[in-house]
Design a protein around this nucleic acid. Structure first.
Lengths: 209, 209
DNA sequence: TAGATTGTTAATCGATTAACAATC
DNA sequence: TAGATTGTTAATCGATTAACAATC
């Protein structure tokens, strides 16, 4: 099976979001042309993207919204549950723990960790903040799918090695650094400062024209 | 002047980060070849990217780290101050307000807004949380460069229109929706749920191989 | 059936990589 | 000067768009 390009994957969650909205609006079917207008992408791209995974539509009819929504959900593994641990219980860690929609999609936060005694023991959305010293032991005794790293880069690098040693395969990295880990460990980076710099560049350009 | 491609812009902050690290390590010069090894990109791409903005290097020598760092900073507008207002003083809003490094780069949070009486009046990093009802008046009387939207999508859409009406040209959008705004308003999206879905897809692929 | 719209191939466009002459 | 490394042009690769036959 030829692997799917990164560009395609990165568009799937957006399709999923729009289809969810269409579903909520009670719309049963949609053509690539109509969806293209809503999403401001070409109809060609929508059809090409979807056909990487199979023929979800029907000639002369279009796509069944509910069916396509479910299918994209399956592709994105949203039909399975994912246990998640958050390391770093500062505002960012707590923001993620509190975000209800993740749980709706099967992402279940089952523990937070921190080294700060002031937050250890605190309950965030029914989940206790545990002492980081117990992390290794915890990981060895619980099946964890995803670890979110919401702590400063100095600590993130070291903790990431521990995670890999404990067999963690998926890391959601908010620390401002690139983790250098083995190939079979997936890292998804959220670099907020880089996002903000892009914004600074782009609005600077607008001002000068 | 031909405009620079999005792909190039999105790589600049990462170059900037690596150059900052090199500076801290006390390294004075670096060749595209050496930088390419550190960053895991091709030397060709580095040279192509940089030459969109001018010749920053010198044949036979490479690039002066400190000089290149400053030049990329200028391109990204980091040599200017940017006043920022955060709307939504929940955990995510507070996380951003608290992030010290932004201030180092010239991004100054000068107000937070919320509609929740329990947080209004609270001081976050020397900045007061104000009542959202006073937003329009505030924007009309203060020069604000960037507004961060860290609130639910239902509210974000409405607030975004207010922002545009008040002349805001740069929005850092954390709400899970695409804001439909005039062309001269720059929106930089941070869609955390889409990032998490990409991670779910990718580590699912690893498991199946 | 006729119209609509997909699935898919072919054409275009843009971005990345390779190569090398220029030059420090 | 000789070696190193850039700046830049040319070649390749991949992604997007256009076109249309297949088919519901």
């Amino acid at each position: 099976m030829k692997s799917i390009s990164k560009a395609v994957i990165s568009r799937l969650p957006r399709y999923y979001r729009y289809l969810g909205e269409l579903k909520e609006e009670g719309i049963e079917r949609i053509s690539s042309g109509d969806l293209s207008e809503r999403m401001h992408v070409t109809a060609s791209q929508i059809r090409q993207d979807l056909n990487n995974f199979g023929g979800f539509g029907q000639q002369g009819y279009g796509y069944n919204v509910s069916y396509l929504y479910d299918e994209i959900g399956k592709i994105l593994n949203l039909d399975k549950d994912h246990s998640m641990v958050i390391i770093g219980a500062g505002h960012l860690g707590q923001a993620i723990a509190n975000y209800a929609n993740f749980e709706k999609r099967g992402f279940k936060v089952i523990a937070l960790f921190d080294k700060n005694p002031e937050v250890i023991g605190k309950i965030v959305r029914n989940v206790e903040v545990l002492d980081i010293d117990g992390l290794e032991n915890y990981l060895n005794n619980n099946k964890i799918d995803i670890v979110a790293l919401t702590l400063p880069k100095e600590q993130a690098t070291k903790i990431a090695d521990t995670l890999v040693a404990c067999g963690i395969k998926a890391i959601w990295n908010f620390a401002h650094t690139d983790l250098e880990l083995p190939d079979d460990v997936i890292v998804e980076n959220v670099h907020l400062s880089e996002s903000l710099m892009k914004l600074a560049y782009n609005y600077g350009e607008i001002e000068n024209r």
